[in-house]
Protein backbone atom coordinates (compact mmCIF):
# COMPACT_ATOMS: atom_id res chain seq x y z
CA UNK A 1 0.00 0.00 0.00
CA UNK A 2 1.04 3.52 -0.54
CA UNK A 3 -0.43 5.24 2.43
CA UNK A 4 1.30 6.51 5.53
CA UNK A 5 3.60 8.94 3.77
CA UNK A 6 2.98 11.47 6.49
CA UNK A 7 3.58 10.31 10.02
CA UNK A 8 1.93 13.31 11.62
CA UNK A 9 -1.29 12.90 9.73
CA UNK A 10 -1.30 9.23 10.59
CA UNK A 11 -0.91 9.84 14.27
CA UNK A 12 -3.64 12.47 14.20
CA UNK A 13 -6.02 10.05 12.55
CA UNK A 14 -5.22 7.34 15.06
CA UNK A 15 -5.70 9.77 17.90
CA UNK A 16 -9.07 10.99 16.61
CA UNK A 17 -10.33 7.48 16.02
CA UNK A 18 -9.22 6.33 19.45
CA UNK A 19 -10.87 9.31 21.05
CA UNK A 20 -14.14 8.78 19.22
CA UNK A 21 -14.12 5.09 20.07
CA UNK A 22 -13.49 5.94 23.70
CA UNK A 23 -16.27 8.50 23.80
CA UNK A 24 -18.68 5.96 22.29
CA UNK A 25 -18.05 3.50 25.02
CA UNK A 26 -17.36 5.90 27.87
CA UNK A 27 -21.00 6.12 29.01
CA UNK A 28 -21.13 2.36 29.34
CA UNK A 29 -17.85 2.26 31.28
CA UNK A 30 -19.11 5.05 33.51
CA UNK A 31 -22.30 3.11 34.24
CA UNK A 32 -20.24 -0.01 34.93
CA UNK A 33 -18.03 1.91 37.33
CA UNK A 34 -21.04 3.37 39.15
CA UNK A 35 -22.59 -0.06 39.52
CA UNK A 36 -19.52 -1.23 41.42
CA UNK A 37 -19.22 1.87 43.60
CA UNK A 38 -20.46 2.76 47.05
CA UNK A 39 -23.86 4.41 47.45
CA UNK A 40 -22.64 7.86 48.46
CA UNK A 41 -20.01 8.32 45.72
CA UNK A 42 -22.49 6.97 43.16
CA UNK A 43 -25.12 9.52 44.13
CA UNK A 44 -22.84 12.51 44.44
CA UNK A 45 -21.07 12.20 41.12
CA UNK A 46 -17.62 11.18 42.22
CA UNK A 47 -17.37 8.19 39.90
CA UNK A 48 -15.80 8.50 36.48
CA UNK A 49 -14.33 5.42 34.85
CA UNK A 50 -13.22 3.47 37.87
CA UNK A 51 -15.33 2.38 40.86
CA UNK A 52 -15.04 4.45 44.02
CA UNK A 53 -15.38 2.48 47.26
CA UNK A 54 -15.57 -0.74 45.29
CA UNK A 55 -18.32 -3.10 46.38
CA UNK A 56 -20.72 -5.64 45.00
CA UNK A 57 -23.80 -4.73 47.00
CA UNK A 58 -25.84 -3.71 43.95
CA UNK A 59 -25.21 -7.04 42.26
CA UNK A 60 -25.95 -8.89 45.47
CA UNK A 61 -29.32 -7.21 45.72
CA UNK A 62 -30.10 -8.04 42.10
CA UNK A 63 -29.53 -11.68 42.97
CA UNK A 64 -32.41 -11.51 45.41
CA UNK A 65 -34.67 -9.52 43.10
CA UNK A 66 -37.22 -11.98 41.89
CA UNK A 67 -38.96 -9.59 39.49
CA UNK A 68 -35.74 -8.88 37.67
CA UNK A 69 -35.07 -12.54 37.01
CA UNK A 70 -38.63 -13.29 36.04
CA UNK A 71 -38.43 -10.54 33.43
CA UNK A 72 -35.02 -11.73 32.35
CA UNK A 73 -36.54 -15.14 31.80
CA UNK A 74 -39.40 -13.70 29.76
CA UNK A 75 -36.90 -11.92 27.55
CA UNK A 76 -34.83 -15.05 27.02
CA UNK A 77 -37.96 -17.00 26.13
CA UNK A 78 -39.04 -14.26 23.80
CA UNK A 79 -35.70 -14.14 22.03
CA UNK A 80 -35.52 -17.91 21.55
CA UNK A 81 -39.10 -18.34 20.37
CA UNK A 82 -39.33 -15.05 18.49
CA UNK A 83 -35.90 -15.45 16.95
CA UNK A 84 -36.78 -18.94 15.70
CA UNK A 85 -40.09 -17.79 14.23
CA UNK A 86 -38.42 -14.79 12.59
CA UNK A 87 -35.76 -17.03 11.13
CA UNK A 88 -38.18 -19.50 9.60
CA UNK A 89 -40.47 -16.80 8.20
CA UNK A 90 -37.56 -14.77 6.84
CA UNK A 91 -36.04 -17.71 5.01
CA UNK A 92 -39.36 -18.94 3.66
CA UNK A 93 -40.35 -15.51 2.36
CA UNK A 94 -36.98 -14.37 1.07
CA UNK A 95 -36.49 -17.35 -1.16
CA UNK A 96 -39.59 -17.13 -3.37
CA UNK A 97 -39.40 -13.35 -3.42
CA UNK A 98 -35.84 -13.55 -4.72
CA UNK A 99 -37.14 -15.21 -7.88
CA UNK A 100 -37.64 -12.91 -10.83
CA UNK A 101 -41.25 -12.36 -11.93
CA UNK A 102 -40.43 -14.42 -14.98
CA UNK A 103 -40.09 -17.52 -12.82
CA UNK A 104 -42.64 -16.56 -10.19
CA UNK A 105 -45.53 -14.58 -11.70
CA UNK A 106 -47.15 -13.63 -8.38
CA UNK A 107 -44.00 -12.11 -7.00
CA UNK A 108 -44.68 -8.42 -7.48
CA UNK A 109 -48.14 -8.70 -5.96
CA UNK A 110 -46.64 -10.25 -2.86
CA UNK A 111 -43.85 -7.70 -2.86
CA UNK A 112 -46.21 -4.75 -2.96
CA UNK A 113 -48.33 -6.28 -0.26
CA UNK A 114 -45.31 -6.72 1.99
CA UNK A 115 -44.09 -3.18 1.36
CA UNK A 116 -47.55 -1.81 2.03
CA UNK A 117 -47.65 -3.61 5.37
CA UNK A 118 -44.24 -2.21 6.23
CA UNK A 119 -45.25 1.39 5.58
CA UNK A 120 -48.82 1.55 6.80
CA UNK A 121 -50.32 0.80 10.15
CA UNK A 122 -53.77 1.13 11.66
CA UNK A 123 -52.58 2.70 14.85
CA UNK A 124 -52.13 1.51 18.37
CA UNK A 125 -55.69 0.99 19.51
CA UNK A 126 -56.95 -1.21 16.66
CA UNK A 127 -53.72 -3.18 16.89
CA UNK A 128 -54.34 -3.74 20.58
CA UNK A 129 -57.94 -4.73 19.98
CA UNK A 130 -56.91 -7.27 17.36
CA UNK A 131 -54.44 -8.93 19.66
CA UNK A 132 -56.96 -8.81 22.47
CA UNK A 133 -59.63 -10.54 20.46
CA UNK A 134 -57.19 -13.25 19.46
CA UNK A 135 -56.87 -13.93 23.20
CA UNK A 136 -53.15 -13.35 23.18
CA UNK A 137 -52.84 -10.63 25.83
CA UNK A 138 -50.49 -11.64 28.59
CA UNK A 139 -49.08 -14.54 26.59
CA UNK A 140 -45.69 -14.89 24.99
CA UNK A 141 -47.44 -15.10 21.60
CA UNK A 142 -48.37 -11.44 21.79
CA UNK A 143 -44.67 -10.67 21.84
CA UNK A 144 -43.57 -12.99 19.05
CA UNK A 145 -46.41 -13.31 16.55
CA UNK A 146 -47.22 -9.67 15.71
CA UNK A 147 -43.49 -9.21 15.06
CA UNK A 148 -43.13 -12.55 13.30
CA UNK A 149 -42.49 -11.05 9.86
CA UNK A 150 -39.36 -8.91 9.96
CA UNK A 151 -39.82 -7.24 6.60
CA UNK A 152 -36.49 -5.47 6.60
CA UNK A 153 -34.72 -8.78 7.19
CA UNK A 154 -36.72 -10.44 4.44
CA UNK A 155 -35.58 -7.79 1.97
CA UNK A 156 -31.98 -8.09 3.14
CA UNK A 157 -31.90 -11.84 2.71
CA UNK A 158 -33.86 -11.65 -0.53
CA UNK A 159 -31.22 -9.36 -2.02
CA UNK A 160 -28.53 -11.74 -0.90
CA UNK A 161 -30.31 -14.71 -2.48
CA UNK A 162 -30.58 -12.80 -5.72
CA UNK A 163 -26.81 -12.54 -5.84
CA UNK A 164 -26.35 -16.32 -5.72
CA UNK A 165 -25.32 -17.59 -9.14
CA UNK A 166 -28.20 -19.09 -11.10
CA UNK A 167 -26.01 -22.01 -12.13
CA UNK A 168 -25.97 -23.42 -8.62
CA UNK A 169 -29.72 -23.61 -8.49
CA UNK A 170 -30.04 -24.97 -12.00
CA UNK A 171 -27.51 -27.69 -11.25
CA UNK A 172 -29.49 -28.68 -8.17
CA UNK A 173 -32.70 -28.73 -10.16
CA UNK A 174 -31.15 -30.95 -12.76
CA UNK A 175 -30.17 -33.32 -9.95
CA UNK A 176 -33.87 -33.47 -9.12
CA UNK A 177 -33.97 -31.10 -6.15
CA UNK A 178 -37.28 -29.32 -5.66
CA UNK A 179 -37.58 -25.77 -4.29
CA UNK A 180 -37.48 -26.89 -0.63
CA UNK A 181 -34.37 -28.96 -1.10
CA UNK A 182 -32.73 -26.24 -3.17
CA UNK A 183 -33.43 -23.73 -0.45
CA UNK A 184 -32.14 -25.82 2.41
CA UNK A 185 -29.30 -27.65 0.72
CA UNK A 186 -28.01 -25.10 -1.76
CA UNK A 187 -29.01 -21.62 -0.60
CA UNK A 188 -28.78 -21.74 3.18
CA UNK A 189 -25.27 -23.20 3.51
CA UNK A 190 -23.75 -20.48 1.37
CA UNK A 191 -25.76 -17.70 3.00
CA UNK A 192 -24.25 -17.94 6.46
CA UNK A 193 -23.11 -14.31 6.75
CA UNK A 194 -26.55 -13.03 5.78
CA UNK A 195 -28.34 -15.52 7.97
CA UNK A 196 -26.13 -14.54 10.89
CA UNK A 197 -26.92 -10.90 10.21
CA UNK A 198 -30.69 -11.28 10.10
CA UNK A 199 -30.55 -13.51 13.16
CA UNK A 200 -28.55 -10.92 15.03
CA UNK A 201 -31.03 -8.24 14.03
CA UNK A 202 -34.04 -10.21 15.13
CA UNK A 203 -32.45 -11.30 18.41
CA UNK A 204 -31.45 -7.74 19.18
CA UNK A 205 -34.88 -6.48 18.14
CA UNK A 206 -36.63 -8.92 20.44
CA UNK A 207 -34.26 -8.31 23.31
CA UNK A 208 -34.58 -4.55 23.03
CA UNK A 209 -38.34 -4.19 22.56
CA UNK A 210 -40.15 -2.64 25.51
CA UNK A 211 -43.24 -0.98 24.09
CA UNK A 212 -45.26 -4.07 23.17
CA UNK A 213 -44.49 -5.55 26.56
CA UNK A 214 -45.81 -2.44 28.22
CA UNK A 215 -49.04 -2.38 26.22
CA UNK A 216 -49.79 -6.07 25.85
CA UNK A 217 -48.67 -7.61 29.11
CA UNK A 218 -51.18 -7.20 31.92
CA UNK A 219 -49.07 -8.61 34.70
CA UNK A 220 -45.61 -7.72 35.80
CA UNK A 221 -44.54 -11.37 35.70
CA UNK A 222 -44.96 -11.29 31.94
CA UNK A 223 -42.93 -8.19 31.29
CA UNK A 224 -39.82 -8.58 29.23
CA UNK A 225 -36.71 -7.13 30.81
CA UNK A 226 -36.70 -3.89 28.83
CA UNK A 227 -40.23 -3.08 29.93
CA UNK A 228 -39.24 -3.80 33.49
CA UNK A 229 -36.25 -1.49 33.23
CA UNK A 230 -38.22 1.21 31.46
CA UNK A 231 -40.78 1.23 34.24
CA UNK A 232 -38.12 1.11 36.90
CA UNK A 233 -35.75 3.77 35.70
CA UNK A 234 -37.47 6.05 33.28
CA UNK A 235 -41.12 6.29 34.04
CA UNK A 236 -41.53 9.13 36.53
CA UNK A 237 -44.95 8.39 37.94
CA UNK A 238 -44.66 5.58 40.37
CA UNK A 239 -46.60 6.96 43.27
CA UNK A 240 -50.21 5.94 43.62
CA UNK A 241 -53.14 8.27 43.40
CA UNK A 242 -54.31 7.14 46.78
CA UNK A 243 -52.04 8.51 49.43
CA UNK A 244 -51.13 5.34 51.13
CA UNK A 245 -48.81 5.09 54.11
CA UNK A 246 -47.60 1.59 53.51
CA UNK A 247 -46.62 2.22 49.95
CA UNK A 248 -44.29 4.88 51.29
CA UNK A 249 -42.43 2.51 53.48
CA UNK A 250 -41.70 0.13 50.66
CA UNK A 251 -40.92 2.72 48.01
CA UNK A 252 -38.36 4.19 50.35
CA UNK A 253 -36.34 1.05 50.11
CA UNK A 254 -36.54 0.83 46.36
CA UNK A 255 -34.56 1.94 43.41
CA UNK A 256 -31.30 3.73 43.60
CA UNK A 257 -28.98 4.99 40.96
CA UNK A 258 -26.55 2.33 42.03
CA UNK A 259 -28.97 -0.53 41.67
CA UNK A 260 -30.30 0.83 38.40
CA UNK A 261 -26.82 0.99 36.95
CA UNK A 262 -26.22 -2.60 37.92
CA UNK A 263 -29.51 -3.64 36.32
CA UNK A 264 -28.64 -1.80 33.14
CA UNK A 265 -25.31 -3.60 33.03
CA UNK A 266 -26.81 -7.04 33.60
CA UNK A 267 -29.42 -6.43 30.93
CA UNK A 268 -26.63 -5.76 28.43
CA UNK A 269 -24.91 -9.06 29.09
CA UNK A 270 -26.78 -11.24 26.59
CA UNK A 271 -26.17 -8.77 23.77
CA UNK A 272 -22.52 -8.51 24.71
CA UNK A 273 -22.28 -12.30 24.70
CA UNK A 274 -23.63 -12.89 21.21
CA UNK A 275 -22.22 -9.73 19.72
CA UNK A 276 -18.60 -10.86 19.13
CA UNK A 277 -19.71 -14.09 17.45
CA UNK A 278 -22.11 -12.46 15.06
CA UNK A 279 -20.15 -9.28 14.56
CA UNK A 280 -17.68 -10.87 12.21
CA UNK A 281 -20.54 -11.80 9.90
CA UNK A 282 -22.83 -8.86 9.93
CA UNK A 283 -20.70 -6.31 8.13
CA UNK A 284 -20.41 -8.54 5.11
CA UNK A 285 -24.02 -9.66 5.57
CA UNK A 286 -25.40 -6.15 5.43
CA UNK A 287 -23.16 -5.03 2.63
CA UNK A 288 -24.04 -7.97 0.45
CA UNK A 289 -27.73 -7.59 1.18
CA UNK A 290 -28.13 -3.88 0.89
CA UNK A 291 -25.72 -2.43 -1.61
CA UNK A 292 -26.61 -3.37 -5.10
CA UNK A 293 -25.33 -1.24 -7.83
Amino acid sequence: MIRGTNRFVDWTIYAILSLVAFVSIAPIINTLAISFSGKIPAMSGQVFFWPVEFNLSAYESILSDRDFFVSFGVSIKRVLLGGAINFIITVLMAYPLSKPSRLFPGRSVYMWFVIFCMLFSGGLIPWYMTIYSLGMLDTIWALVLPTAVPIFNVILLMNFFRGIPKELEEAANIDGAGPWKTLFVVFLPISLPSLATVTLFSIVGHWNAFFDGMILMQHKENWPLQTYIQQLIISVNSIMNTTDPEEIRRLTNMSSQLLNSAKVMVSMVPILLIYPFLQKYFVSGIVLGAVKE
Partner: peptide
Protein backbone atom coordinates in the same frame (compact mmCIF):
# COMPACT_ATOMS: atom_id res chain seq x y z
CA UNK B 1 -44.35 -24.36 -3.56
CA UNK B 2 -43.38 -20.69 -3.72
CA UNK B 3 -46.93 -19.74 -2.75
CA UNK B 4 -46.84 -22.30 0.01
CA UNK B 5 -43.58 -20.88 1.40
CA UNK B 6 -45.05 -17.40 1.48
CA UNK B 7 -48.28 -18.52 3.09
CA UNK B 8 -47.36 -18.35 6.81
CA UNK B 9 -45.80 -14.90 6.51
CA UNK B 10 -48.70 -13.52 4.51
CA UNK B 11 -51.27 -14.90 6.94
CA UNK B 12 -49.42 -13.28 9.85
CA UNK B 13 -49.23 -9.98 8.02
CA UNK B 14 -52.94 -10.12 7.23
CA UNK B 15 -53.73 -10.81 10.84
CA UNK B 16 -51.46 -8.31 12.55
CA UNK B 17 -51.06 -5.57 9.95
CA UNK B 18 -54.04 -5.58 7.64
CA UNK B 19 -56.85 -6.31 10.10
CA UNK B 20 -55.83 -3.45 12.42
CA UNK B 21 -55.73 -1.11 9.41
CA UNK B 22 -59.51 -1.08 9.40
CA UNK B 23 -59.20 0.75 12.68
CA UNK B 24 -58.31 3.82 10.65
Amino acid sequence: HYHLMLLPGIVLLLLFSVVPMFGI
